[in-house]
Write a protein that binds this DNA or RNA. Structure first.
Lengths: 206, 206
DNA sequence: CCGAACACGTGAAAC
DNA sequence: TGTTTCACGTGTTCG
């Protein structure tokens, strides 16, 4: 693959088109005399250095379409562009990841803040969703049998809890639930505010 | 900064050291005649192309220590190395992120597997921990009022649930809880296996 | 003046 | 064959 080193070290005499601009010509002889340019070796060195650099660059680039000098640079360019692109994509993904995980940790910390309150202020939220469906959130300080009593009370109200989540921590209980009003229950659907007051009364009675 | 374009388009005649290896020399004249090499323009074009490539490469690299050709390539090399490094770091970070988040998602997927069973096989686990403390795990298919009834049953047994976690999903209920036997309850502490059978009976009665 | 960097034209080899 | 790519030596410019 490597080209044969040309051993062409013949002389080269330049001739000006109009004026004789020659500087390093041997004044004594017009005849072909051996003359070496001053910067011959320097130029050789420079060329070698440049060649080495290009070789090094080529070794870094994974895909090489052609060994030629121009294509080496082209491949390097495309490679750099690819790398830039991947870096962008990765940073985007990582940022998304961080934001999502940050949200989760945020809720966690919020919960922990609630836990650290020590004594919980009772809280009841009742939201009417649609038809016989309600969304309930209850927070209260746990006591002996309080959860069972609350369940009984809810059952007395004529509700059934669906998709319930109950979290207890350090003596506090947080309940969020979708509640559905039992159709076969006697009496009409109570008002959301009524339910709220009723539940709050029960919790406070604990 | 740009070097002045040398308008040196003078002719160049090469002279062999011993033998005359000239090929394209005008045979009629030994005197300096205008002679153009065949691939003169081609070479010019090639050089221009190469120069353009290098210019393009230089435009991509952000930090440039020197305008010289060799340093351009060197800077490109260091830039590529930096990009590689950042890509590695980012992939590592992202992998860590994914693994940590994967754990959370794993539990989720496990739950989802449970959800997909469609019909749940009732399951009760009761483990004696210490003294009056038990650990209970209950899985069963939800029905109207089943949760309340279970709570009542547990209350009847003389237990209070502490640190309870109730998860409901697609009609299935999973309860894990630390249960404490009420001291003031009449009768002795039942056997764990007895409790288990009792709870299982209740669940099956739903 | 010297060293570094460059564009140039050229011959030769490779495809 | 011709086209392309390369290394070479050189003149020139700039610091």
């Amino acid at each position: 693959m490597d080209r044969v080193k040309t051993e062409f070290n013949d002389l080269c005499i330049t001739e000006g088109s109009k004026m004789d601009k020659r500087k390093n010509v041997d004044q004594n002889e017009d005849e072909g005399r051996k003359f070496i340019s001053k910067n011959l070796e320097a130029e050789r060195k420079r060329r070698k250095k440049l060649s080495d650099r290009q070789l090094e660059l080529r070794s870094l680039v994974p895909i090489i379409t052609n060994m030629t000098k121009a294509t080496i640079i082209t491949d390097a360019i495309t490679y750099i562009e690819d790398l830039k692109k991947t870096v962008e994509e990765l940073t985007d993904q990582l940022q998304q990841m961080e934001t999502t995980c940050a949200d989760e940790e945020k809720t966690n910390s919020e919960e922990e803040d609630i836990k650290k309150w020590g004594t919980i202020t009772p809280e009841v939220q009742v939201n009417h969703i649609s038809g016989t469906k309600l969304w309930i959130k209850i927070v209260f300080q746990k006591k002996r049998g309080s959860l069972t009593k609350l369940m009984e009370a809810i059952n007395v109200l004529g509700f059934d809890l669906t998709d319930t989540s109950i979290t207890t921590s350090r003596g506090a209980i947080l309940i969020t639930s979708s509640a559905e009003f039992a159709e076969n229950f006697h009496g009409g659907l109570p008002d959301a505010d009524q339910i709220k007051k009723f539940l709050l009364e029960i919790i406070r009675s604990f």
